[in-house]
Design a protein around this nucleic acid. Structure first.
Lengths: 201, 201, 201, 201
DNA sequence: TCATAAGCGAGACGGTACGTCGTGTCTTACG
DNA sequence: CGTAAGACACGACGTACCGTCTCGCTTATGA
């Protein structure tokens, strides 16, 4: 069955050494933010050489993106609570927590992607696609249970829930709370997904 | 009357020379993005000296924020189409167009605000509050017309429309189209705002 | 009169700040040798920035050459002892001492000149020409005194005395002594300069 | 008989593979000079691995010195023209040609020897001693023929001829010509070697 | 009419990070 | 076992940018 609780997580494309470098990068990123992070510091803390870093990732930007992607890769799990509302709340809350923690990194990655188109593809394929698959899984399960009409599952707005939350996190002084997630699910996402049923009902 | 089409635009706090510097900054920002923008380049293109720039704005970050604020100052207009849907579409499309043009700048400002809390306040008061007031105007008009229940106007999700659009613009390779705005209004925002009426109706 | 004891020293082409940088460079050069010398160290000891150094001299090589040239500039003095032999001994001994001290620097400069033709010109005009003028002065005085025939003053071998001494210094384990200078003057240079007179005498 | 034209060349201490590496080194040395020469490039052009190079010569410096020594090993021949002047001209011209070709290498070796005393001994024994023996041979033959007084053969200035020529080659923009060699022999070396005879004659 | 000051252009400066490159050591896999 | 291939730590190179500073020149008034 498609909805079985399963890790969507792909095998890590990185060697142990590379994973170590990315972990150090993520650490320093959280500690100091993007531009206080120096490649020298990454190399030093990992007891590596700058050349070793630059051999893998041709710029600080790509290093940070890789670290970010690796950092979020392992949490793309299908919640499987049994109801659409439960799944959406779980998903939203997970997204909120994760993104809150990575706020600085997300901002940094966004800036960098605007410069290097290569990073856009990386972000697209390594991050967004994972999320999209996950949400589609949740919606398909809900359709299987008859909670929603399958026709409301579109490619246009699938990322409304995580997208708006990320906006809120990235926008200073608008940090979302668990209550924000609840309101968003109950008053926006579900009304939108069930708009046809209610008209019919 | 509160709904009259009026420019919310405040008088520019900048002298002509300062405005010129900000325009140059905005230009270069669009051309090269935040980190490729150098204060030297701004000074050079404006035939000014770096000291002249730094006398006004104590850091590159504040310069960019000022340029951004100046760049968006003039477009906060109440659409006044006569229907909620029309107003929302107009607002959304305006936001979409403006933000698309300023994508790089927005990314830059987001990063900078995360570092300098002072910039958060500036962004908050000079940008967000304007938008919030505008949307509340639109919603109040709709309530006055009886299109929606005033109780759905909350402080939690007022920025859903611009927020998600900005997310889409800032996230590479997910640029929204006019159709995106339409779907967002028709299938998300309006269903959310009218969720009670339908249940009642 | 042409033979008056006078400083051949030209005015330094360097500003005080530049002179300071060159002095630091020369110090570190003597302390650590050419390739243990780092531009960072020069900048640090001079409390300057690397950019400040590189603004003047586009590479480490040119910096070192400039320091070397400056280091030897101030010692090009006409000895004026009254006899050809005395002048030559004084000149030779001065050259020997100075070059011994700068041995490492000389070797370094020689290597670098082979790479950058621009350095060749610099070495030529700023160093060799000074020496040539000095030796010609000494020989002309000797001719004036009737010690030698003016016709032996040629452009081909004017640098025999300093040249061979520099060879000896630069060639490891062949460091010249004061006795070397004496023998060189008495048994080579003077016999060569007076070869015609003796044939006549 | 001591004066027979004979190759002083010792059997090469290197295996064919090693000789090949040294030849590549010498090539690259002539092409790019000492610092532009990289051990990686030597290994690459010889289709060898860096480890293979470093197993033989523990540093770039020793590699270059070995290549240099190998490069000059084969030319230490006693000219045997029958006259002192002829021998000196032949010797000087051979030295001039060889050293001109190896100019960059000579500069490189000089720098390196100043750092590693071990290289000094190598240069001393493998290069200078050969030359010294050769010149002493020439002078002894001349003494045997009665051209010079044996007492002028000293250990102090035996290398005047090659030494000054090397100085001229190494000093940029002072490249010696065949005429330089002639003048040096006729106006300096021979007058010096025959200074006593003329005084007596 | 001239002088004294404030603003400006030009750009040097200290500091710091970037990304590159070369050396000499080391490991892995092949023959 | 020696070798080719090449990753690795270390560390210097030369570049770029930020934010501060000093220099003259201009302009705009006050004696």
């Amino acid at each position: 069955m498609s909805g079985t609780a399963q890790r969507v997580k792909a095998a890590s494309p990185w060697s142990p050494r590379e994973t170590e470098l990315l972990e150090v990068t993520l650490q320093l990123l959280q500690e100091h933010g993007y531009d206080r992070l120096t490649v020298d510091a990454v190399a030093a803390r990992a007891r590596a050489s700058k050349a070793t870093v630059y051999r893998r990732w041709p710029s600080k930007a790509e290093l940070v993106l890789a670290a970010f992607t690796e950092g979020v890769r392992q949490v793309a799990i299908h919640p499987e609570t049994g109801t659409l509302r439960g799944d959406l709340l779980a998903l939203g809350e997970a997204c909120r927590q994760q993104a809150t923690q990575l706020a600085g990194t997300i901002r940094a990655v966004l800036v960098e992607t605007s410069r290097h188109p290569a990073l856009q593809d990386a972000l697209q394929s390594q991050f967004l696609e994972q999320r999209k698959a996950l949400i589609h899984d949740v919606l398909r399960d809900a359709a299987d249970r008859g909670e929603i009409d399958p026709s409301v599952i579109s490619d246009e707005l699938w990322d409304l829930l995580p997208g708006y939350l990320i906006f809120r996190i990235v926008m200073p002084a608008r940090n979302p709370t668990p209550e924000t997630v609840r309101v968003l699910v109950d008053e926006v996402v579900i009304p939108s997904l069930t708009r046809n049923r209610k008209a019919n009902g």
